[in-house]
């Protein structure tokens, strides 16, 4: 009990110190608006990727349509903000909730039929859902002109700042942690390891999968909502299947079933893409894609379990821990 409070305390202090550090660096200009933007984007990716981490990393449900849920969140939150944007921070919270709930709801509705599918077949079904969302967003202006259809949506208030992004990310990390180490989270992990066995020991597998999927999609929607308030323009092409692959890459490279891995990799990934601009310079701009691909291949060859391979930072793990979660991943 004593140790548990200790850990929570450690985490709170760590977060506050990190926040103060970042805040000081931003106000003094050590982090200029450019790196600030990259930092913000990395936090958005973190939130979205934690969602996929729950769906795939912890519950083992292969989803290739994650970006579509980010897009649904971004569009619904952006639309809400455009319509009710005059109430400042309150309407921003409203927008984020709307994005989260809408993406979660869509996740729930699509999850009910498709979560009966297994592995690659589920992947294809969610990929297909991604295509459906793209078509819907492309033609959305015929029903709601403000969404802009293929021309994209402008005019979402750019209100997201360090406080919003940092503390939302923090809350999401804590929420995810609590979920994963709860009874439900344990049930999710048991499904990932062996669905039949989980069923045998009395886990309601379908309900659990659906819950994890809905939760994961809601986080994607939250990420999308933040995205819409960090970037002044959103269009359907931002949430296509290649972006879904990006989230998958982050989760797998981080290590399946590792929150720490997802968070660190998401941040590293966002900084990598921008950092390559500096490493390569103006002469080699067109090598960025090639180098990125090579880094991807080499990383997975060197760390096939992902960078963190199912391990967690100590402070993210509650005290009681019966078994290493990565044991069965090696199979």
């Amino acid at each position: 009990m004593f140790q548990k409070t200790n850990k929570m305390l450690l985490m709170v202090i760590g977060a506050v110190v990190l926040y103060v550090l970042l805040k000081i660096m931003i106000t003094t200009g050590v982090i200029n608006p450019y790196w600030q933007r990259v930092l913000f984007y990395s936090l958005i990716v973190t939130i979205g990727a934690l969602g996929l981490g729950i769906i795939y990393g912890f519950t083992g449900q292969f989803s290739l349509g994650h970006a579509a849920f980010v897009g649904l969140g971004a569009y619904s939150a952006g639309y809400f903000s455009k319509t009710f944007g005059q109430y400042g921070g309150l309407s921003f919270i409203g927008a984020l909730l709307v994005g989260m709930v809408f993406a979660g709801l869509m996740g729930f509705l699509i999850g009910v039929p498709v979560l009966r599918l297994k592995s690659d077949y589920l992947g294809i079904a969610t990929l297909g859902f991604g295509f459906i969302v793209k078509v819907a967003l492309d033609n959305a202006d015929k029903i709601i002109p403000e969404l802009g259809g293929a021309r994209g949506m402008v005019g979402t208030p750019q209100v997201a700042n360090l406080e919003w992004l940092f503390f939302t990310a923090l809350i999401v990390i804590v929420l995810t942690r609590n979920f994963i180490f709860s009874t439900y989270g344990r049930a999710c992990t048991s499904i990932r390891e062996d669905e039949t066995a989980a069923d045998m020991i009395g886990v309601n597998t379908f309900k659990t999968k659906l819950m994890a999927f809905t939760f994961g999609c809601a986080l994607a929607g939250l990420g999308g909502g933040l995205y819409a308030h960090t970037y002044p323009f959103i269009c359907p092409g931002d949430f296509y299947f290649l972006q879904s692959f990006d989230y998958l890459i982050v989760v797998v490279l981080g290590g399946l079933g590792s929150m720490t891995g997802t968070v660190v990799t998401a941040i590293g990934w966002a900084f990598l893409l921008e950092g390559l601009r500096f490493v390569l310079g103006p002469q080699f701009v067109d090598f960025r894609g090639v180098i990125y691909a090579l880094i991807l291949i080499i990383t997975i060859l060197v760390r096939r379990q992902g960078i963190f391979g199912g391990k967690e930072f100590g402070f993210l793990v509650p005290q009681v821990r019966r078994e290493k979660p990565d044991a069965a991943l090696r199979g």
Partner: peptide
């Protein structure tokens, strides 16, 4: 002095890049 940058035809990257060009 011309500073070229790649946006990969992605609005997000274009935003990042424009911020870089302007502020950095």
């Amino acid at each position: 002095e011309v500073i070229p940058g790649d946006d990969r035809n992605d609005p997000k990257e274009a935003t990042n890049l424009a911020t870089k060009l302007i502020t950095e």
